[in-house]
């Protein structure tokens, strides 16, 4: 079988990336003004969380809209971010603890390199879905310009809290419990 040349494989990757961005842009536009680029992450509180669809690190489709009805903890992280790595084991524990009540953690890696994210996720045995982020997604979430950055999204798909930097995990857990009670 003929192997694709480096150039054709690079071109295919670029086209795939362009298509992914176009799809994201279309989805964001389809969701109306609430998903236009926010001024800051905090500006998204009490607004619909911007929709996205992408493949996770295991190749499964990850759609935020399909998680409607669940409380979602959306965590932007990267392998080079020390505080992010401190939080992730706690997020895994919450995933196990609250899954039956309709709770879902979603990780978005802001690494430049998916291989690094995959390697670390494997090492940490992360058991919630992780997808790769990009600048467009970051801008739609008000600018992911400092990590960690975590959004807590209620069952209706509305952002209810934003946590940036080294956060108080007890406070996040308390908020999760509150949102899980809401129907």
């Amino acid at each position: 079988m003929r192997r694709p040349t480096d150039n054709s494989s690079k071109l295919a990757t670029r086209l795939a990336n362009a298509a992914r961005r176009a799809l994201l842009a279309a989805l964001l536009l389809a969701c109306g003004p609430a998903s236009a680029q926010a001024r800051s992450p905090q500006a998204l509180v009490h607004k619909p969380a911007p929709a996205f669809v992408r493949r996770d690190l295991n190749g499964q489709q990850l759609s935020l809209a399909r998680l409607r009805g669940k409380v979602v903890l959306l965590n932007f992280w990267a392998t080079w971010c020390g505080p992010c790595l401190t939080e992730m084991p706690e997020f895994m524990a919450w995933q196990r603890q609250f899954a039956a009540q309709g709770f879902q953690v979603v990780g978005i890696s802001m690494d430049d390199d998916a291989a690094a994210a995959r390697k670390l996720a494997t090492k940490l045995k992360v058991d919630y879905p992780i997808a790769m982020g990009d600048p467009d997604l970051g801008r739609h979430y008000g600018g992911v310009l400092g990590l960690p950055l975590t959004f807590l999204i209620d069952r209706k798909g509305e952002v209810r809290a934003v946590y940036q930097g080294v956060s108080n995990l007890n406070a996040i857990q308390t908020e999760i419990r509150t949102l899980l009670i809401e129907r």
Partner: peptide
């Protein structure tokens, strides 16, 4: 720092030269 964060936003006129780690 991170190139992805640079693409998202950076100081006007600055150049990318990292990551230092």
């Amino acid at each position: 720092g991170s190139h992805m964060l640079f693409e998202e936003a950076h100081i006007a006129g600055s150049e990318y030269a990292g990551p230092g780690a």
